[in-house]
Amino acid sequence: MSVADEADRSTDDRAAGRVPDDAYASDPRRPATSALTPWWRWLFLLPGLAAGLYGAYGLLTAGGRVPLVAWGTWFLGSALLHDLVLAPVWVGLGWLAARFLPRPARGPVVVAAAVSGVLSLVALPFILGDPGDPGDPSFLPRDYGRNLLLIVAAVWLVAGLWSVVAVHRARSALREG
């Protein structure tokens, strides 16, 4: 059972059967009263709830230093940035890779895409953000755009060589096999 199967569980017939004689019940684990869960969960749940409530209380009482609209924008915006931008882009790239790349090349390409993607995200504020105090030569002393390009180029060069070798090996194994 992968996470994908689990996500489909509301339509899993085995699930409905778990709560006898209740045609409307769909959750197999009986969310409120399941006994299948380890006791130590409470060591995380209760302090976790307390910490979360403390944080919420702190934000609500922070007054003008943290306007809640601005905070909420960044809070929701951060989740949506992932859910509506990063995840769909990565899913789309994965679809392209599965469609156009030979199987043995997919591993190297995924590694290269992950490394160059995450480095780009980390470097982006240094490249696009506020250049800071122009009188301070110690802040952002490098050429970040150029450095990022160089690193990403090196990563893809290695991944390209690795892919070619992997594809070549797979083909010769197929011929010999």
Partner: peptide, 29 residues
Amino acid sequence: QWYPFGFFFTVAHYWTGWIAIGAVAVHVG
């Protein structure tokens, strides 16, 4: 050193930190 937030970073980072660690703990549970 880019501050496009509309809130004081340090204050928000501190309190959101409590929410984040709380949410992580609840998730583990």
